[in-house]
Design a protein around this nucleic acid. Sequence first.
RNA 1: GGAGAGAUGGCCGAGUGGUCGAAGGCGCUCCCCUGCUAAGGGAGUAUAGGGUCAAAAGCUCUAUCGAGGGUUCGAAUCCCUCUCUCUCCGCCA
Length: 435
Amino acid sequence: MSGFPLRNRPMLDPALLRGDISETARQLASRGYDLDIATFEALEAERKRVQGETQELQHRRNTRSKAIGIAKGKGEDVSALLAEVAGLGDALKVNEQRLADIQARIAEISLGIPNLPDATVPVGTDEAGNLEQHRWGTPRSFDFDVQDHVALGSRRGWLDGDAGAKLSGTRFTVLRGELARLHRALAQFMLDLHTAEHGYLECNVPLIVNVQTMQGTGQLPKFEEDLFATQVGDTRRYLIPTAEVALTNLVADEIVDADSLPRRLAAHSLCFRAEAGAYGRDTRGMIRQHQFEKVELVSITRPEDSVDEHERMTRCAEVVLEKLGLPYRRMLLCTGDMGFSAARTYDLEVWLPSQQTFREISSCSNCTDFQARRMQARWKNPQAGRNELVHTLNGSGVAVGRALIAVMENYQHADGSIGVPQALRPYMGGVERIA
RNA sequence: GGAGAGAUGGCCGAGUGGUCGAAGGCGCUCCCCUGCUAAGGGAGUAUAGGGUCAAAAGCUCUAUCGAGGGUUCGAAUCCCUCUCUCUCCGCCA
């Protein structure tokens, strides 16, 4: 067993697994997930049978018990009726246990199945299959040898990986002085932009969440090794890998009014990732850290609005880079490169002069009803007269640490000083350059 | 950390072992009456899952009264554990 109190909440529409399961399996295969159809169908058949038997037993018990109650009320002798139900309880208990076991096994499989890719997503196995959508800005040409952010940062002791390693280990960094201030300015700027101009509601959320919350957005049970965990007494909690977890789960187990949609939420938060699967990658500098900051955008929408909202949200992230004057490109991720919960994802990649390449700085995903089903997040559809699942979207708007790197490298001068983008100067006391 | 109280349907609020999925009220929906921005009468009004059905509707079964477990032929009601909320005390950024 996984050790998690798994909710019996599938991630995909159960109808997709009971109906044309081979078509569903084909779509899942396109993103590298191998659905064992035979096993799943066998479990489903078994479940159906045992559930039927269990319900039949429950029905018998209920009717007999009711008869006993009525007979007693009339003062009749109930010993014959009691004899009739003898042994029924034990049989029922056995069946209920069997049913629970089967359902747990089904849940374990269901919870590990990723979202179905949208029909417009290109098929591919890795990032090489991603499609560039457009570019913005022109990478600056330098008339001197560019330095990377590590060199630029260590010159004045602004960026100190050794100090981070001493305190915590690898992939931790200490920022100081003007660079720490620039980092803070970036976060303030982004959050202000999204709240003041893009209509997002600023939120400040817990960084430590419970198991159910992690399960709601899909981090658990499958990706526990990517998370930092806490244990107090026998209560286990997890540090959020992104504010998406907290913001999206705000609607878990809620039935929201139609006129409150779309809900647009933004938060600046710390993020914690174990980076278990990335041992050799980006070990230099602060590109890939265990702890970093991010401004996150989350939208909760009606199902029919999520496609448009995805475009809108991605634009909100792009505007951040444009206002900062950072060249970037938008990539449509292929099936093999998308995250677990996403049906469709755009990545924004920012230009890093030291690497002469674009590096991911934002990821905007439409999760359709995938997370909503698991969270049981619904809205009242006035037309259908029913409670239906909402759609959830999330996007970075944008990663603060990586934005800092991008600013350092793109705005560097020959002497190692760093220009402050126009948009950040109000947050830097008007300073135009840090040196 | 200590002491106490509580958790019932969209909301309020009854219900301490038996025809309780749950009285009553509010709200909401539909109908009727009323020449009317008032009042009255009637009906309806939880969610999820299974089965049946081509499907929907319908019918039917099961589960759900904070969560999990227990006692019992039978639990909203009794017992245990947990979570959360409120009040008071202590501590604290």
